[in-house]
Amino acid sequence: MIEFERVSRCFGDQDALRSLNLTIEQGEMAFLTGHSGAGKSTLLRLLLLLDRPSSGDIHVNGEPTSKIRSRMVPRYRRRFGVVFQDHRLLFDRSVHDNVALPLVMAGFSPTDTARRVRAALDKVGLLSHEQANPAVLSGGEQQRVGIARAVVARPEFLIADEPTGNLDPQLSSEIMSLFEAFNQVGVTVLVATHDLPLISRLRHRIITLHEGRLAGVTAQ
């Protein structure tokens, strides 16, 4: 469970988030939406401790993140799988090595790593591209590699920042189905997106931000 408690983040005299209260339940899938500058990215950065709130606190499974020391931040971040809009794949290594990165970091054995990477690639339908360079893949395929990397270490939470921003409606729909599949096996999923037509068809909560405040929550 993720709880934002009166969380504010100011940059000079600009408020990116203003006293935000928000709860995302364990095992829930929710969409985070709003115009550019509404505070979506700030919220995700705060959740991943890439930034700290100016005031308020974020609790993850009851644990206040303000108590997490910088030395423990990497371990905390490993509880999250993160999907970026621009994939952030490393083009100097193969699809396999990209997906394996979180496992290498966590110190998995090569055999275990290979097995898990193949399982994750199989889930996103890219097992046949395991040894390919990500540069030769299409945008949709690259995003699926990014998703495989995010889920390979079986995180508690899956966070996605505009994962369908560069994709056509058909591919976007496929990507969202993938997120739903992971949610169904118990992963808490939070997707920041502009794609209202797509998410309004899906039966998940839509959290709308406006100028750093919670503008509405649509339960579906």
Binding site: R77, F80, V82, R88, L101, M105, A106
Partner: peptide
Amino acid sequence: REEILVVRVIGGSPGF
């Protein structure tokens, strides 16, 4: 730089 940014976000320790 790009690799460092990615690894940092997905939980790579400074040592790693």
